[in-house]
């Protein structure tokens, strides 16, 4: 279990992490979500005793990371940036790590096998692809078979097969009763992996709740209504107190977005007035959209033209 209390980190006038308090419980995958620059990596470095908090504290299994006599047996961490020497082989990298925490050498082959790197274990890691580097990082995290696993952006650079593997691994580790904290800036990734979410933006806590609660609270839905007589339908719906949003109604593919009543109710209303409908669809906005909305004010490096976002969709 990981507990952060009032965790704060400032660099000069800039506050990277602002009074974060949260608990990461065992037995489930906790997603640590936020846009780039939200303070996720800084928070994780503080959890691991690499960075000193300006104020507040973080404990792992009841004590600070640095106080652990054999930290790799207690917490396994995949750090965001590659933390290895390019001239050393994967096996040698695991060898010194194992030696530092009194982990038997037999475990090295186990983790190499687990992440699928046994064939390239004796190659210099400088030649590894980004994905292979990530796999080695995960091997490092699992070396001490730790009850707490912290993975910073684990799917970066992985191919779809690798992404699914990490997703399943995280769920499996949590299923074994471990505490699993996975950071990502991709909501879609978290939606498939995490049971619980901690969302941060500009170093501040935006949400700390279960995934289902997050969906219920933030993923808005509306009913898409299209009709050859849009204006009349709109007037009718507004008369019944519904919230109507016009989208390109002057064009052929224009639509009304209606909130406040379900599709069946809207259909009956419109039908009762003798108007025709060409489409009546419940649209559930994606979690990605919900995340965007939630973090809109806290994005560090926002693109200013909304067209850019549209063009890339």
């Amino acid at each position: 279990m990981i507990v952060a209390r009032g965790l704060t980190k400032t660099y000069g006038p800039k506050t990277a992490v602002d009074d974060l308090s949260f608990t990461v419980e065992p037995g489930r995958v906790t997603g640590f979500l936020g846009p780039n620059g939200a303070g996720k990596s800084t928070t994780m470095r503080m959890l691991l005793g690499l960075d000193r908090p300006t104020s507040g504290s973080a404990t792992v299994n009841g004590r600070s990371y640095a106080a652990s006599p054999a930290p790799l047996r207690e917490v396994g961490a995949l750090l965001e940036a590659r933390a290895l020497h390019p001239g050393r082989s994967a096996r040698d990298h695991l060898r010194w790590l194992a030696a530092s925490n009194g982990i038997p050498r037999a475990r090295i082959d186990q983790v190499l096998d687990l992440v699928g790197l046994e064939a390239v274990a004796d190659q210099r890691v400088g030649r590894f692809s980004l994905g292979m580097g990530q796999r080695l990082g995960i091997a490092v995290a699992l070396l001490g078979d730790p009850p707490v696993v912290v993975l910073d952006e684990p799917v970066n650079g992985l191919d779809p097969e690798g992404i699914r593997w990490v997703r399943n691994l995280a769920r499996e580790l949590a299923g074994q009763g471990r505490t699993v904290l996975v950071s990502s800036h991709l909501m879609s990734e978290m939606a498939l992996t995490a049971d619980h979410l901690i969302v941060v933006g500009r170093g501040r806590m935006l949400a700390d709740c279960s995934m289902s609660r997050f969906i219920a609270d933030h993923a808005a839905s509306y009913v898409r209504v299209r009709s050859p007589r849009t204006a009349e339908v709109e007037t009718l719906l507004r008369q019944h107190g519904l919230d109507v949003d016009r989208q390109d109604v002057d064009r052929q593919d224009g639509e009304l977005r209606v909130q406040g009543l379900d599709a069946a109710g809207i259909g009956e209303l419109v039908g009762g007035a003798g108007l025709h409908l060409h489409e009546l669809t419940l649209v559930q906005s994606s979690l990605e959209d919900a995340f965007m909305t939630l973090t809109a004010d806290s994005v560090e490096y926002a693109a200013h033209q909304t067209e850019t976002a549209g063009a890339l969709r």
Partner: peptide, 28 residues
């Protein structure tokens, strides 16, 4: 504690793969 987190959660044996739990000192 993990063991009490719920019926779906197995008790984690920390020594399963990595036996010999002792505090590594300066020698390590």
């Amino acid at each position: 504690l993990p063991s009490a987190a719920g019926p779906d959660v197995v008790r984690l044996d920390p020594d399963r793969h990595v036996p010999g739990r002792r505090a590594p000192g300066f020698g390590a």
